[in-house]
Design a protein around this nucleic acid. Structure first.
Lengths: 120, 120
DNA sequence: ATAACGGTTGAACGGTTGCTCAACTGTTAT
DNA sequence: ATAACAGTTGAGCAACCGTTCAACCGTTAT
């Protein structure tokens, strides 16, 4: 979704050119950074974080989450869609109701790392 | 920075009320979720992620980062300000140049967890 | 003194994003 | 058949966010 510039647009001289070259060589691909940012984007909104936390506590349907967070089904459904597309949650349809749960254990790990940092 | 609603605006009935009550009781404070989201917001932009990665590789000045990422000093400085306010980076002024580095080791941990998830 | 340079700042813009609203699908109950 | 309900979807709007631009501050060199 972002732009890739080819012409150098930096408005200053390199100060430590050797250092910069060394770091540049070790740098992951541009794409990996976008993927990483996209992953953390899912954790960067308090509604999504609360949904993910709730699902880490129990499998829940859309109405349950809506009641828990005091929000509309629609708002929750929109966010669940984003989480689904990011492969962070999976769902299981049983009749009218759709049960959501975390896709894998990495999500819980990411939570813990975050809370760990907050309570430094 | 968000809004706190008091009147129930949920537009549906609870389906699993016992479950919801159990989860609600175990839920962290609202504020913690905002703090967590704010933390991950710093990782949710590819420019900031690349800056953080660069600083995890070496202490660098603003011009170094600008050259490395092929962006203007101004853009980098704005992002560094955000990272500073979030206590993710610290700086050390030596004459004209300002050297930035990671504030603590948690940042590297968060990186690794993220990359781990991407290469599932 | 003054020019040059590293870095910061605030306003302005364009793009993104989260929620609302209303309409809709699909399943169950009557 | 039809009503009721769980959930989804798309358009629209307001708030937010990242970059640019121009002006600025502090330090160093001339």
């Amino acid at each position: 979704m972002p732009v890739k510039k080819s012409a150098p647009i930096c408005d200053c001289d390199v100060i430590h050119s050797k250092l910069v070259e060394r770091v540049r060589k070790a740098m992951p691909r541009e794409e990996d950074f976008y993927d990483l940012a996209d992953l953390y984007k899912m954790f960067s909104d308090s509604t999504r974080v609360r949904i993910l936390w709730a699902l880490s506590a129990a499998q829940m349907c859309v109405c349950d989450i809506a009641v828990l967070l005091n929000m509309t089904k629609s708002a929750i459904s929109h966010q669940l869609r984003a989480l689904r597309l990011a492969n962070l949650v999976k769902y299981d349809k049983k009749g009218k109701t759709v049960y959501y749960s975390l896709a894998d254990s990495h999500v819980k790990d990411i939570f813990e790392k975050g809370f760990e940092h907050i309570r430094e």
